[in-house]
Design a protein around this nucleic acid. Sequence first.
DNA 1: GCCAACGTTGGC
DNA 2: GCCAACGTTGGC
Length: 156
Amino acid sequence: MSTNYWLLKSEPTAFSIEDLKNAPKKTSCWDGVRNYQARNFLRDSIKKGDKVFFYHSNAEPSGIAGTAEVVKEGYPDHTAFEPDDQHFDAKSDAKNPTWYMIDIKYEETFPRVLSLEELKHVPALTDMVLLQKGSRLSVQPVTKKQWEAICKLAQK
DNA sequence: GCCAACGTTGGC
DNA sequence: GCCAACGTTGGC
């Protein structure tokens, strides 16, 4: 099975790539996704061994900060069942979970953040989901071609 | 902090 | 099933 590529958004004030790097085993669950389209990717499409870009949103600047690898495929997001959790969802049922999460492991931090502004000017990336007008998906697919173009750009 | 764009909710 | 109102995302 071939590797697929993804982009995960996070506000660095909530959880940054540095937080992932400093986590035990450099691994963390990716919880709190409460959007059905993003949930479907987490539950159905993202596989162990897939690669992800770690995107910092609402940041200075917003952009791709580095990469990580999927180490655990979709499983129920338990934070949905915890009333004290910020991501609690009273309507979800532990016996038939609505929300899913994955585990990712830190791979690398790019020498510099590839800002949204910079990415917009890369011809190979014009079709990227991230760059579409009004795109808010916090879990989104990335093509191999886009992945390679971005990794190459990061090393410049 | 503003606000455009999108997603969700709920009345009908 | 429509759609207005509301809530959220996320760039700026």
